[in-house]
Design a protein around this nucleic acid. Structure first.
Length: 297
DNA sequence: TTTCATGT
């Protein structure tokens, strides 16, 4: 049933993408990525792939096994899935599935060959460009980390689309504490066979001097790319006995002292869901999750 | 080890 639903979503997204692509290509001449599912024939019922033989179809359903956090502007790549926010020019979320094997770096893979490139699948009105980031003082910070996709050159390269970037404070954040969090998530694959990771920006309200709450964020470049106030990461680990553990983190987009333990950034997952407007792991029954942020439920 | 930007 779940697969039928996911299949349905794939069909809708593909059809919408196809129509949009056809229509807009006349005016804009830009490409769009593969649909969520590679093959769609109107008369053929969707049959979920059981094995993980190469088709993208099965890889994407593997990554999204426990549900889409939201359904807006879905883009699927070979090894991660992204939902794009046209208004902020920053993704709503990205989703990854990590295993010991698929994050193992291949010697032939070279990150330095990768280039940050505009995502041609996004309409030019809503697409961020390298020039937006240049001189802004912010890093082009990966949401789906390059370090999670080093088994294959094509996969790392696909993490360099600007649709996967958010303006992040470099020193003290992207290059330090946020990177620490990313390494921690990779390390979880040493303990658990399957790690699912959802990452995204937050724009959190703050009390101003008049005592009222406002959401305030900087925008950079000609395209007014939003600078998120915070970033979240929600991780689910599948344990050997078929139960699950969840950890949820929120870090402010500012320099963070490296001596502050990652555990102090843990928050109740529903607090992120409420502020981001997303639902995490909605297909996973709550009874199967027996630990949240390291604590038994 | 991984993140990046910038200056030569």
């Amino acid at each position: 049933m779940r697969n039928a639903i996911i299949g349905g979503i794939g069909v809708i997204t593909f059809v919408a993408g196809y129509i949009q692509g056809k229509k807009e290509r006349v005016h804009w001449n830009y490409d769009f990525h593969k649909p969520i599912f590679g093959k769609v024939l109107a008369a053929t019922p969707f049959t979920p792939a059981v094995t993980n033989n190469q088709p993208t179809t099965s890889r994407i359903s593997q990554i999204m096994k426990y549900g889409f956090p939201g359904l807006e502007n879905i883009r699927s790549f070979d090894d991660y899935v992204l939902s794009y926010d046209r208004r902020t020019r920053v993704a709503y979320w990205v989703f990854e599935h990590l295993t010991k094997e698929n994050i193992k770096s291949n010697e032939t893979v070279d990150r330095s060959l990768c280039e940050f490139k505009p995502d041609e699948s996004i309409h030019p009105y809503f697409r961020s460009l390298n020039s937006d980031f240049k001189g802004s003082g912010y890093d082009r910070g990966h949401l789906a980390a390059a370090g999670n996709h080093k088994s294959c050159q094509k996969h790392v390269e696909q993490t360099f689309y600007l649709s996967n970037m958010a303006p992040q404070v470099g020193t003290g954040f992207n290059r330090h504490s946020w990177n620490r969090l990313e390494k921690y998530v990779r390390k979880l694959t040493k303990l658990h066979n399957n790690v699912y990771c959802c990452t995204g920006p937050l724009y959190l309200p703050r009390k101003e001097s008049d005592g009222k709450n406002y959401v305030k964020y900087e925008v950079i470049g000609a395209n007014n790319v939003a600078v998120p106030t915070h970033f979240f990461k929600v991780v689910v680990m599948e344990t050997v006995n078929g139960t699950f553990e969840m950890e949820a983190f929120v870090m402010p987009n500012q320099p963070i002292d490296d001596s502050i333990p990652l555990s102090s950034f843990q928050v109740p997952p529903d607090s992120i869901e409420r502020s981001a407007g997303l639902l995490f792991f909605d297909n996973l029954s709550k009874e199967k999750i027996n630990k949240i942020n390291g604590k038994r439920k």
